[in-house]
Amino acid sequence: MKASLSVAFMIFSLLLAFTTKTLLVLGAQAQLYPVIDIDGDMVVAGAEYYLMEWTGGAKSVNGGLDLSDRGRHQTCPLDVFRHTTHTFGRALTFSPAVETQENVIYQSSDLNIKFTGAPPICNNTTTAVWKVDSYDEKFGKWFITTNGVEGNPGAETLLNWFQFENLTTEAKHAYRIVHSPGGVCETWPHLSSNLGVYETDDGILWLIFHIRKDFLGLFPL
């Protein structure tokens, strides 16, 4: 098995996916801070976007995210993976745990992430909502899978919530994705960490809940 790595993402709007404009970061760290797409527009609930992995340069990205039936189950629900080529993958929508003015998505706020439809293989038997899967003893990982529940924040849906956190880098429009759902149920124990990628022997880059001691709490790269 290959090593797992933390990843950061840029957000591309569906209609303007090929733009190369850089972004502005709005607000202050102590305030509500909108998530910004590659065109400089605020990300809003319900609109379609692509997530592309940021590779370190101001405009450098790898492949986007998608679903695969080549994984652990080879059936639905399908797991999330990153394309190894420069392809946009499957479009996504975001929905916050708490309704916001003008449906704006804010950083460090709990939200659901959902692909815009699962592949035909699933026959509408599962949802395309992301969730952290149960610990996989064979791989020693928590994979990001689908068939989560959209909405209904609480103890029963803790594994379905994620957040965008801005990176303090030259690419101010790059974000890490974090699973830290304390805001939806403060009294319930939960794990908190970045999402990362894990390459299996067949070369597929799976999205995982990336537990590393130095990542907990401050979520550094």
Rank of each mutant, 00 (worst) to 15 (best):
V149C: 09
K141Q: 15
E199K: 15
F94D: 00
T146W: 01
K2A: 10
T75S: 07
M52I: 03
V43D: 01
N147D: 15
N112R: 02
I36P: 00
A30W: 10
E137R: 14
L24H: 13
H86G: 04
S95C: 05
L205V: 02
N123H: 08
Q74E: 14
L78I: 07
R212P: 00
L15K: 13
L16I: 05
V7A: 14
G154F: 06
G151R: 03
E102R: 14
V178R: 04
L221N: 11
N166S: 13
A30E: 11
A45T: 12
L221P: 01
Y33E: 08
L158R: 06
P181I: 05
K213C: 05
T169G: 08
Y50R: 04
V132Y: 05
E48N: 10
E53I: 02
Y106A: 10
H173G: 14
E102D: 15
G46V: 05
I11H: 04
I36Q: 04
V197K: 04
L24N: 12
G46L: 06
K21M: 10
S134C: 04
W54Q: 02
F88R: 09
V7G: 03
F143Y: 13
W142K: 06
D69Q: 08
G64Q: 04
S4L: 06
L78C: 06
I11Y: 04
S108A: 14
V7H: 03
A8S: 15
S6H: 04
F139Y: 14
K131Q: 14
G217E: 09
M10K: 08
L51R: 02
R70F: 11
G64R: 02
D110V: 05
G89Y: 07
P96M: 05
A45Q: 13
G56I: 07
E150Q: 14
E137H: 13
T200K: 11
Y106H: 15
D136I: 07
G71C: 06
A174F: 03
G56C: 08
Q107Y: 01
T84E: 08
V80E: 00
N103P: 04
S193V: 00
A3N: 12
I204K: 02
S134K: 04
N152P: 01
S4P: 03
V129P: 00
G57L: 00
L167A: 10
T22G: 09
L16A: 13
G27L: 08
T127N: 11
A171E: 07
L195Y: 03
V44I: 15
E165P: 01
L191A: 12
A28G: 11
T169C: 10
Q101A: 13
Q74H: 14
L207N: 01
V132N: 05
V197A: 10
